[in-house]
Amino acid sequence: MPPHRAALDAVATPSLNIVLSIRDDLQRYGLEGMLRSLREVADCHPFADLTSAVDAVRAPATDLLIVAPGGTDLDPDSVLHRVAAYGVRVLLLLPDLDSVDLNRVASLSGASLLCSEGLQVETLQQVLVAMGEGEVHIPAALTRALLQLAGRGLGDRQAAAPAPPRLTPREREALGHLVEGLSNKQIARRLHISEHGVKRLVASILAKLNCPNRTLATVRALREGLCAPVAAHPAGRPAQRSSPGGDVRPVPSATGQAVASSLTNGW
């Protein structure tokens, strides 16, 4: 067994109940087979149409909805947006990185992204493990493009409304950890509060920043210096996070000049 696969198998992760929505029969059968081969997956319910998949998501045991979006699936009034608004974790399966409509993908706040082109079972397993721990997966190449898109959008809004948002000290502290790339669970540990309390804080922050998701909020926080300083990492070295690809990337500080190429969160 390859060392990286053995390391993944050693991680204690919850079993996931997954609903799968893919129109293409061959792609759906292939991904279903990959999912059923993973020990992290307790059950998989495949559907050809999104409406039936969303109906199945209503079952309280569902942990994750995987969708290969097409047509009007990403429209603002689609059923996918409504189910995501209720807190269902969504993984968008994209055909390739070159054909991604960033504006439509970014509109689905909190969704993880994964490219289906050349997808390997090890990569799928890594993403599911991360999502099982409350993180959001975004490929590094798309993260850079999404941040550029976010910067352009924020620039337009800042020109129209330059007044800084009024954040409480607690919100500024939580925003600093959000900029670090921490999940809700990790922020809760740092602030010594419940994950539910962190969700309320994050919701308030996004509303005050007029940002639909954490990526946009991170960009605005770094541009405008909105978050409280984050405690230094032990030994004066910057905190680091291992990406699903295996390399280690620096986590940005509240006053940093760049955003990490892989953002995660637990929203």
Rank of each mutant, 00 (worst) to 15 (best):
Q125D: 14
L149F: 10
K199S: 14
S37D: 06
A7E: 13
D55T: 15
R5F: 12
V248Y: 03
R189V: 08
D9P: 03
G110Y: 02
Y86C: 06
P169D: 11
R5Q: 00
N103Q: 07
D156Q: 13
P14I: 11
L8C: 05
N210M: 13
A141T: 09
S21D: 09
D55L: 07
A207T: 13
Y86F: 12
S194L: 13
M1Y: 12
H233C: 15
R172D: 12
I22Y: 01
K199Q: 10
G71K: 08
R237M: 04
P76C: 08
P238G: 15
S242N: 11
N210V: 14
E195V: 09
P250A: 06
R170I: 10
A106H: 04
G30F: 07
A232N: 11
L206Y: 03
A10M: 10
A59V: 13
P46C: 07
C115T: 04
G71E: 06
E224T: 09
S261R: 10
D9Q: 11
A85E: 10
S116I: 06
S243N: 04
L91T: 06
R89I: 07
G87E: 11
V54Q: 03
A217M: 11
D25M: 15
A6L: 14
G151N: 12
A6C: 03
R23A: 12
G87F: 04
T13Y: 07
R23K: 03
T264I: 02
R223C: 15
L147K: 13
V202Q: 00
G70E: 13
L94Q: 13
G225V: 10
L149D: 07
L80E: 03
R152K: 06
G225C: 13
K185L: 05
N265F: 02
A10S: 05
E122M: 15
V105P: 09
L142T: 07
K199R: 14
L146R: 08
E133D: 14
L38Q: 00
Q126D: 04
D77F: 04
